[in-house]
Amino acid sequence: MKITTSAAVAAPREHVFSALNDRGVLRRCIPGCEELTDVDEETFAVKLKLGVAGIKGKYAGTATRQDLLPPESFTFALDGKGKTGFVRGTAAVRIETQGEASRIDCEADVQIGGAIAAVGSRLIGAVARKLTRDFFRELADAIGAPPDVSDQNEIDALPDPGRDERLE
């Protein structure tokens, strides 16, 4: 599943870039983060209690930073799992200057499996958006920018019986 997210944060991009690479800030902004520990320079481990409303699960995983290009872009390789499923994939982050503010584009390409994929497919996209929205709201707050996070999100690549590419 591909999840494309964009957000505007009213802060210069150097600021945003370093915040996104600051593990203290990440610990604070990652939704449901209960523990964030360093593995090495590029990799950290997280324990999350994640979900919405009563549908919560505990997940453990790692994020490894790749292709670091300050202050423009980097990629996280993600790998996490819990009792209700797993998530693996990458999230590529680009930051652009837009006047006074910065525009963050995040393109995640993730594989979701287990019970959450089997029974929650209709909600996964929406949950992912909500979590990213929460993340950027916190990020803006951490940077000290106005909390007004405008976002434009897109989810695609769910196979759709109405438009199965195999059939075209």
């Binding site: 599943m1 594989q111 499996g113 994929a117 089997a118 029974v119 769910l158 196979p159």
Partner: peptide
């Protein structure tokens, strides 16, 4: 789905 996850499990 393209990763072999069954989306019609219920």
């Amino acid at each position: 789905d393209e990763n072999g996850q069954l989306l019609t499990g219920e």
